[in-house]
Design a protein around this nucleic acid. Structure first.
Lengths: 199, 199
DNA sequence: CCTACCGATCGGTAGG
DNA sequence: CCTACCGATCGGTAGG
């Protein structure tokens, strides 16, 4: 699809990971051959193995990088003394920013993690659970504070928020009219206040 | 993952499509070999080609079936004389029901449509645009009626609704405690009224 | 629907 | 980082 030469200021290994993110996100992990990847970098297929141990290492690295980005963005918020509605807005801003700034690895993360071998697979499901837990606890906090409706189901409201922030990887276009913050604030406004006219 | 023998009451071709939906959704299109698929049906790899013309035909068929299900569920609502909030709730019920009743083909639809060849690819993007348009028009209708807030952005509110109903393919478990209608009503309640405590 | 096979391509390695 | 190669597997076909 998009031509994009490797960034010459980066170490070879990072160039490989960048190209792999792009190809895996566009074509999928299994539909990308090591020769395709090498071709992007002006190498022969076998030469890649001077820098990496194998194809799956690339997938693991991309998925782990994405996980760490989400972790880093969200978990520092856990103990921040903000009212739950403001904390939710801030979490959504950060979450969508990670997606928007890493569209390719986010796409790989959401689509290809099932192809990981058992160890890496288990780490991803554990990570997913911890993100779920973060949003559920946030909902519970808000209900206790009286900021959120008392009749909410924390599980369902967390799913709703996660749907909004995660699904962005399918439609958001970096460099377009909307910044990731615009998107997050728009979604947060609608989620907090509702679509229905209160009048 | 899950063992599941073919349904002997169905024609062979439908058995093949059922097994393909399951394997493509679990392992991905490119990671599923025709021999894997044949093995599920107790056949040899080459025998599949007595029933189908090729691997891509299976993907096209699965994706088209999913598209038709969404179309059939939603477009009859277009000219139904319901207030926009009720229409939105009903659209979400139907949309999530299609996802819930077709988890496997919905997963294939969302993950593998990029691997279609140009003709089928273009049909899918066209279909996606028409679903987007459906929800945007619904939002505009509701704003005109005064049922929805006047300051909404139809595009963003349509994305928010689509996020909720589509993302369900990643977490919903048919046969669990929640029916697809429970999910849709819970999401519709939260989206219409908001998470924030109005008191 | 099976057997036997086709050319192409896969991920990865040896040796330089 | 290249050349040359490995065994394995791919989607698909011919002939029965």
């Amino acid at each position: 699809m998009t031509e994009r030469p490797p960034d010459p200021s980066k170490p070879r290994r990072e160039q490989i990971l960048d190209s792999a993110s792009r190809l895996f996100s566009e074509r999928g992990y299994h539909a990308t051959s090591m020769r395709d990847l090498a071709g992007e970098l002006g190498m022969q297929g076998g030469s890649l193995y001077a820098h990496i141990s194998g194809k799956e290492e690339l997938l693991i690295e991309i998925v782990n990088q994405a996980s760490r980005q989400f972790d880093g963005a969200l978990f520092s918020l856990r103990d921040t003394p903000l009212p739950a509605d403001q904390k939710l807005r801030e979490a959504m801003r950060r979450h969508i920013q990670v997606v928007a700034d890493n569209m390719e690895s986010a796409t790989v993360f959401f689509h290809e993690w099932k192809h990981l071998s058992p160890g890496a697979y288990a780490r991803v499901t554990g990570w997913r659970d911890s993100i779920d837990a973060f949003y559920r606890e946030l909902m519970v906090q808000g209900m206790k504070e009286g900021v959120f409706r008392a009749d909410l189901d924390p599980k369902m409201s967390a799913y709703l928020v996660l749907s909004a922030v995660n699904w962005a990887y399918t439609w958001y276009r970096p460099g377009g009219a909307l910044s990731s913050r615009d998107v997050a604030d728009s979604f947060a406004d609608m989620l907090l206040s509702g679509l229905r006219n209160p009048i």
